[in-house]
Nucleic acid binder design. Sequence first.
RNA 1: GGGCCUAUAGCUCAGUUGGUGAGAGCGCACGCCUGAUAAGCGUGAGGUCGGUAGUUCAAAUCUACCUAGGCCCA
Length: 995
Amino acid sequence: MSKNVELKNTLNLPRTDFPMKADLPRREPEILAWWGRSNAYHGIRGARKGCPPFVLHDGPPYANGNIHLGQALNKILKDFVVKSRSMMGKDAAYVPGWDCHGLPIEHRVDKELGEAKAGMAPLEVRERCRKYAEHFIAVQREEFRRLGVLWDHRLDEEEERKGAPSRRAIYRTIDRTYEAEIVRQLGRFFEKGGAYFGEKPVHWCTSCRTALAEAEVEYRDRKDLSVYVRFPVRGLEQRVPALAGRRVSVVAWTTTPWTLPANLAVCLHPELQYVAVEEGGETYIVAEGLLPAVASALGWSGTTIAAAFRGRELVGEGKEWIGARAPLDRPYPAPSGPASGPGVLILGTHVTLDAGTGCVHTAPGHGAEDFHVGRLYGIPPFNPVGDDGRFLAERVGAPWLAGAFVLDANEPIVRDLEARGLLLRREEVAHTYPHCWRCKNPVIFRSTPQWFLSMEASGLREKAVAEIRRSSWLPAFGEERIAQMVATRPDWCISRQRTWGVPIPLVVCGACFPGAPDAFVRDRAFFEHLRKLFLAEGSDAWFGAPAAGGTVRPYAGREERLARLVPAGVTCPRCGKRDRLEFQEHIVDVWFESGVSHSAVLGRDASLPWPADLYLEGHDQYRGWFHSSLLVAVNDRESAPYRGVLTHGFTLDGEGKKMSKSLGNAISPIDVAEKRGAEILRLWVSQVDFLEDMRLSDEILDRNAEAYRKIRNTFRYLLGNLDGFDAARDSVPYPEMEEIDRWALHQLEALRRRILSAYEGHQYHVVYHALHNFCGVTLSSFYLDVLKDRLYTASRRSPARRSAQTVLYRLAADLARLMAPVLCFTADEVWQEIEALHGRPKWGEATVHAALFPEPLAVPDDPALLERWDGLLRIREVVSKALEGARAAKRIGGSLEAKVRIEAPEETVAFLRTFGDEVRFLFLTSGVEFGPAGEDALRSEAIEGMRVEVLRADGEKCGRCWSYTTDVGRDAALAEVCSRCAAVVREIAGLREPA
RNA sequence: GGGCCUAUAGCUCAGUUGGUGAGAGCGCACGCCUGAUAAGCGUGAGGUCGGUAGUUCAAAUCUACCUAGGCCCA
């Protein structure tokens, strides 16, 4: 054995089982398994039993497909919230949810079934959809779990195994308890008179044959046939004498010629200027501001203006309407109703000069604004189009249109107009047009019988806005955003003509309805009866009765259905009879379903109270879940379901572009977890400011993996130097510590405060930056680097070394907890090592997540200490620069080969002298002396009058501590080492000190 | 087309009510160490604060417009 090895054996080098290589893809699943085995969720909740509850109520992702990055981000953020609130001393339950009903799943099932679906009973289709949803809940459950998101996994597995129809560990909108709550909440609207039946143009997908919510419509570019059409008008001379004796037409422009058969009016703006121009013997009326554009489009030249007037002057505001005949001439019929007769000219403020002619073709059955303006004039919507998008023979005036698909009817309609001399121009236009989010086909506006929830009937709008004001919104602009939406949104169309959803219990009287549109059942007893029925059997009870083997068979007939669904005594509110009651088949908008979640999930026990403390979703949910949940809660309880709402931005690629599968720039969170580890993804979530949109790319993941390694290595070093340290036995009291150790404790305390307040305010990126900076700068490059000499060379049990270890222990134990919500796996790895230091088994019962955040350190305020060390660090920077100069000049290699001579103002020298001999260790040099510096000394820019010269260290290198000293070999028995080391070696070897 | 939001070094973030030459960490380059070693340390180079025009003695910070991007609507 060589001398060097022997000397090395007298050092206290780091030793730990905590590996440098994280191997996260392998290790994380092991830790997950341990959390499962040890029932960590229960351990955590148990540790907080009786503590004030904190409820983050989970917004349910849709149970379709693998999770994407945005969902991963959302759930990881929620996990940060839940874990950090728990460590703050709150009993933080977490019940994740899934949104299971709706079109996307029904579509997938439709595709799988193909032709077979046509012959299938609703119950069969629903069963397929349920299986589909359950499959993807299982997929997503594992994926979220893999990311470290914690909930009651054990109970979840148990309920899943049993196939429980309702769950407690998670919630599903297909749970019976949930469906029962949906019916109850519908009843709350119906019984208050907030629900009504009406005709309304809605986005209608002719392929899916259903009304679509705004959220189900997406806008894409499309080419269509656009036309300029003239509407001959008579009687205008009564208003504008200059038009007497002329053949006058108003000119309108439309990109949907197929809606012309439903035209009932032409709309002008009351305040805009219009002109009547002469062209080829005809007189045309268009908005003055659009005349150049129209003239150019129609090839007019040298037109003369016959008259000019405002819309108001031409149309008048009374009921003596001016007839505007055009497409309304034969073969199209005139509708009956208050505005029966030929089409008319009307006024509307929605008319703009953005495009067209300023005279707007108006079909109240096919447009939202048309509908509204029609209502003002008492013109009811007229819709000649069936639910398959084909003209209805009994309604459309032209027999040759009957059965034609609307989008294919443009051409024949235009040809017909042309033949009758009404067409002024046709052209292709590219424009954005609504499409079905699911089948991607263009959708149409079509007035249909639907069910609505009124925003006004019971003051819902007003109360909802007031509740928005009472809630807290982060970021702050969210409050205005949702308040504006609620203030201006139309009534809520809740009916959908599909199969996979919760039925709206609609029972109308065949005798009275729809002549009397309020002739439908809305008794409280009826909804209560259905609630109980759904609770017992699920919403399938609407379609059939329980049969053998837990299946459901369709009702034999109306009588059986009536007997089961409508309690005795419930009758038509109009005629009081029961014998004509009929069932309507509508399911409820899925936004209503998810809007019920707060009531279905919260309030069932004291640790899960209603309302929630926090909702946390992407900022698209102002229009979605925050909104629907608010309306349901306000209607039911006159209160918002949340105290606070936090939103995050969207995940974008490295260039700030939207991620999408088709662009090929999407990053799969599970891929990241499997290749790099969930911790890397979690670290990314923690480092970005999630209030804004966030970018992710491979480069960014690389950066995070590097940051992770830095943090991990810092822990490895802390733990390595705690080998054999027993905090209870070996800790050194604060007053007896080395000064730099006391300084380090103050740094830790400052960090603790900073991180805790960051958690409090959901500023996880502050947690990250503070932690990472602390590990890299405060610890690794300074404190731990300086400490090496003491930790390695001082005697194992010496007070000096114990003083350092006392701090290292605090650092490890506190930092592990401070980072636990973010690096949830690694924190537990560290925690297990700390358990071992206490003589307890690793991977026993204790998870770091059941611990509380560190208490404030009992360190006295000492601003002088901090200022003193700030000063030292500034000087150390100058010394480092000087050393680097010497290194570059090849005069030294390692800094221990050097001593520095410092020339500085008296006060600076005096300051440095207060550190005594310690100062050479702080500079990592073998010596520091004061006095005039030589020619090539480095002049400090920061400190006036300071110069630092680097010289070769005096003496020889000690074979043990590697410092250069003049006393190496003074102890003849230990010729290789300095006196300082000699004393330690003698102590270890049990040798007496030399005389 | 409308409303709201965002734009500081390669990356992620700081930049208090406009006021000394714009900061940090990481990355990068160069070098050191080989007793944290697929680690550790040091030094250095990187930004006309998205662009333009204003307000002001003074703007990354205020105003207008433009560009790029995001969300929600039409």
